[in-house]
Design a protein around this nucleic acid. Structure first.
Lengths: 196, 196
DNA sequence: GTCTATAGTGCGATAGAC
DNA sequence: GTCTATCGCACTATAGAC
C-alpha cells in the first residue's frame, strides 16, 4: 500500500483504513437503520455514495464483509467509551461515568445501534465474536461492585440490553433526544444503585 | 367457506380465521426471528410449511400483507394481557399484574418479539397503526399513577421498550429464561416503584 | 479506484389446471 | 386450497478496460 493511503490512520486499532471504505460503512449503517440489513442491497449502498456496485466490491469482496465491518464500527464506539472509563482513577465514579457514556452513545446513534444489534445475522455473528465478548468482560469489570452477588453479571447484561434496546423502539420513536437521555440515565442509576 | 373450517374460531377478534393462514403466520414469525424480515423469502415460508409459493399467495396477496398480519398477531398477545389487567378490581394490584404479564410474554416469545419490533419496516408500520397507539394508551392508563407527573408517560414507554428490547439482545442470548424473567421483573418493579 | 458489461441465481407475483 | 409453469426484475458477484 502507498504511504498516502494510510497517512490519516495513526491509531493502530482503526477499522476503516481508507476513506473509500469509511464512506461505504457510513452509508451502509444509515441504510441498515432505514431498511434493515436484509432490506439493504449493494446497489442502494453504491447509489448512496454515488458510485457503481463494482466500486463497492473493490473495497469489500462480499456483502457479509460490509455487514461485519459495519457492526465492528459500532462496537468500536463502545470500546472507546470503556477505554475512557477504565482510566478513571476513582473506582466509585467510574461506573457512573461508563453508564453516562453508554447512554449518550445509545441516544446519539439511536437510529442505527438497535437495528444493528437486533438483526439476527449480526446477533449470531457477535455470539462467536471474540472482541465482542472481550468488551462485555471489560464492561462488567467496571460496573460490578466487588462484593456483588453472582447475579450482578446478569443484571449488568440486562441493563445494557435495556438501554440499547430502548433507544429506537417503536414505543419511544416520538421522544426527543434530551428526554430520552435523561430518563435512561435515571433508569440506569436506579437499577445500579448509583447516586451520581 | 365450509362450517368445519371455522368451527374452532369462536372469538370475534381473532386475526387468523383459517388454519392455513395461521400456519403461514406461525412459520413467518419463526423465520423472521431467525433471518430477519428482509432476509425471509416467500419460498422459505412455503418450504417451512411444505407447500408452494402459489399456495401462500392464495392466502396473502403480497409479502407486506404477511408481515402486517404477523406483526398484528404479536400485538394481539399484548392486547390479551392488557384485557386481563383491566379487569383486575384492585387499582393497586393492576400495574404489577400488567408488568408481570408483559415480562412473561416478552420472555416466552423472546425469539420473535424483539426482531418484529426492531425491524425498520414494522416500526414505520406501527407508527401509523391505530390499534398500536390504542394499545399504548391502554398500557399507560393501567400503569401510571393518577398523581404522577408529566414524565410518567415517557418513563412507561422507556420501561416497556427496555423489557422487549432486552429479551433477545446479544448481551443476554446465553441467559436462561428463568433468570431473565426474574431480573426483568426486578428491573421493572424498581423502576415503577412497585413492591409486589 | 472506478467504470461497463454480464453471468447466474433467486426474488415477488401471476395465470390457469385440478 | 394446492399445484405447475412462467414472467420480469433485482440481486450478488465477477471479468476486464481505463
Amino acid at each position: 500500500m502507498s504511504p498516502s493511503e494510510v497517512a490519516d490512520a495513526p491509531d493502530a486499532g482503526s477499522i476503516e483504513p481508507t476513506a473509500a471504505k469509511a464512506r461505504i460503512i457510513r452509508a451502509a449503517l444509515d441504510l441498515f437503520a432505514r431498511h434493515g440489513v436484509g432490506g439493504t442491497s449493494l446497489q442502494m449502498i453504491a447509489d448512496e455514495i454515488g458510485v457503481t456496485k463494482a466500486a463497492v466490491y473493490h473495497q469489500y469482496k462480499t456483502k457479509d464483509e460490509i455487514v461485519l465491518a459495519a457492526a465492528e464500527d459500532e462496537l468500536a464506539r463502545l470500546q472507546a467509551i470503556i477505554d475512557a472509563a477504565e482510566t478513571e482513577p476513582s473506582r466509585k465514579r467510574a461506573p457512573d461515568m461508563l453508564v453516562t457514556g453508554i447512554v449518550d452513545l445509545a441516544v446519539d446513534r439511536r437510529r442505527t445501534v438497535s437495528t444493528i444489534l437486533s438483526d439476527p445475522v449480526i446477533a449470531d455473528f457477535f455470539a462467536e465474536h471474540e472482541t465482542f465478548h472481550e468488551v462485555m468482560h471489560r464492561l462488567r469489570r467496571v460496573l460490578i461492585d466487588d462484593d456483588a452477588g453472582p447475579e450482578a453479571g446478569v443484571r449488568t447484561a440486562i441493563l445494557l440490553a435495556a438501554i440499547s434496546g430502548a433507544v429506537m423502539h417503536p414505543f419511544v420513536v416520538d421522544l426527543d433526544d434530551d428526554k430520552l437521555r435523561a430518563e435512561l440515565l435515571r433508569l440506569a442509576r436506579r437499577f445500579l444503585g448509583l447516586h451520581g
